[in-house]
Design a binder for these strands. Structure first.
Lengths: 209, 209, 209, 209
DNA sequence: TATGAATGAGGCTTCATTCAT
DNA sequence: TATGAATGAAGCCTCATTCAT
């Protein structure tokens, strides 16, 4: 019988749950899996979490927080730095997710349809993300950089593209080096969004930075 | 007690299951839901399907078939018709899915992570779809129409964009008219893929058609 | 596998639960006991009752109803018949309870403290019973038959006496013939309540009847 | 961490358990409740009691002892003092119980049906009590004071009356002042037991004393 | 073919008790 | 003596599947 402090055990259980979730997905992950992964007795789990649901909530929140920490607001003062900053956000987010493939699995599949309450949290998260993207795009349009395009649909495309790449990455279908992914995504985004005649010019900015 | 032929009953059960699935998702759909929806006794279900899993498989297959039927191979002989044909494929697929939102729900959430066997089927489906898209893109590159871009990543972007739009559509977040969706997607795809200097030219082709 | 109609099985389960309750009391009666007693699988229980609590509620209600059916309102028109009618009520109630000793066990011990909701039902039942007794006593006082005594306390004494006799009967401590119990209780009640100088006179009335 | 002697801690735990029991009843009182009430760690409890059952036994014994200490044997030499002594016993017992409502709760509800062993202790206690009452009654019959009545049933009535009054008192249904309760009970007992023609005479004795 | 009562493995959670510190 | 983390048996309930009618 190994004794840890409450805090340590809690953390360990969350990590164990994350591993279990990664292996089996939410619906097939049982308390048994989590405690086996943690090497702990059944009762110990309930010493730290009131229910299976609670630990899952904790995990979701944890992921939200980590993603939030990594995505920084774009400083729109200095136009020349905008591409770089967008790129930085994408890079940091993608890196975080690729380093924690389970996060992707949870976000993109398990969680959806989990239950009403969670669906709402997830939807809210995406809605905010989309709002942010849309804001950026509209801003670009006002500045005359972004093409005349339905901003809402374009934002969905950007989000969907990223999600799909990550998802397939996790599935192992396609695993190019991280740098390359970012690079390509950036270029695609560029073409999809920037006024055709400005693409080269903008890209120059980035290369300099 | 209504007596139907085996085939009729089977079909009726599949439709009932589809409705139930649409309401609750795979994991929360119980046999009880299906038979309630079908207005049939418990035993009757097992007269037609060996297990819950089997009817689900059937449904998946059904969806695959329908999607397959709607996506037609592009005739590459006549270059001028290519955009139109691609557009046609997208339109037909999108229409099918939007008319059967449950299909989307199943594909994009429930099914993922269902279990190893299903995951493989789904992956295979997507792999084929991606292969087709990639083929088209490479073709376009050879012909000098498509930009010099990582075809694999671009194909993921296209797929992801479409999925995301459909998914958000189902969630009800964003519900523009079908025509507009197709239109915008097409334009985004165009810019994302076509050599910038050819965009206008190509678009002309489509308008004529 | 024996098949009964839903109604039959339900009834059988209630009877089984009643037996189990009689043997072990509420807190120690497990679903296992009930289904063992009924010779039925675990799932079968839940086909008929949503929870352990539900079947217990059902049983309580059943007992309430049976007791209610047996206790008839006293007709105060004909004074000479009042003693006889009271006696009849007591006799029928006592007979019912002695024939179903489990009822007594449940009422007098298991049930008390079960939980807030049930406690309230039980309390309400007793309150009504006490009200009825008190009404009878006050009536008697107005007619000059019943001694000048605190009616509320006297009613508690009457109720408590009866409960105790029944309870000890069930425990097996003291098991005189039913007739004798009724007889003695009546006489005790008589002396405890009736104006001393009228006792003999009143008792004559009963003997005639 | 306050350090107490073994004896002090034990006493403190018993008091805490008594409070917990009073709030929730035996079946719903958990070790957690007791230690929370005592402000002590889980392990500490088991340092002093081997099991939940043990502390409960201790409590029961404690109550038995206290009741025993309060009920004094009747001195039958001086007939004139008998009513007073009986009254004194009742008064002291009732006072003790009303000052410790938990005792009543435990005795009259929780405990009953607890388990075979405890049931036996309780039954033995009551049997002794009843024997004592019966002894007194028979004595009175020999002396020609008590009516010709079934002593066993009468003793049950007396016990039951007292129990019911106390129980309803605890429930809060009826809370007259203590003095009045004793008074009324005495009068009821008097009429229920004493030869009708002696009632007044006997009551005089008490008033003088 | 149709019914719906019956089954029982399996999951979640509780809580008295133990044990390392 | 005191702590509180850890244990695991045992109970409740669900639900896919079976089977007698």
């Amino acid at each position: 019988m190994v004794r840890l402090t409450k805090e340590e055990r809690r953390k360990q259980l969350i990590e164990a749950a994350l591993r279990a979730l990664g292996k089996k997905g939410y619906h097939d992950t049982q308390i048994s899996d989590i405690i086996a992964e943690a090497g702990v007795a059944r009762g110990t789990f309930y010493l730290h979490f009131q229910s299976k649901r609670e630990i899952f909530d904790e995990i979701i929140s944890k992921i939200f927080v980590e993603v939030d920490e990594v995505v920084r607001p774009i400083n729109k003062e200095d136009i020349t730095r905008i591409p770089q900053e967008i790129l930085g956000n994408i890079e940091r987010a993608v890196t975080l997710l690729l380093e924690n493939p389970t996060y992707i699995k949870i976000f993109f599949s398990d969680a959806v349809g989990l239950d009403a309450e969670f669906d709402q949290r997830l939807r809210k998260f995406y809605t905010q993300l989309l709002k942010a993207i849309q804001g950026g795009l509209r801003n670009g349009q006002e500045m005359g950089i972004i093409r005349d395009v339905d901003v809402e649909i374009l934002s969905l495309c950007l989000l969907g593209s990223l999600k799909e790449i990550l998802y397939q990455y996790v599935l192992g279908t396609h695993k190019p080096p991280l740098k390359q992914i970012i690079q390509e995504v950036y270029r695609i985004v560029l073409h999809a969004t920037i006024r055709p005649d400005l693409v080269d010019q903008i890209d120059e900015l980035r290369k300099k930075a």
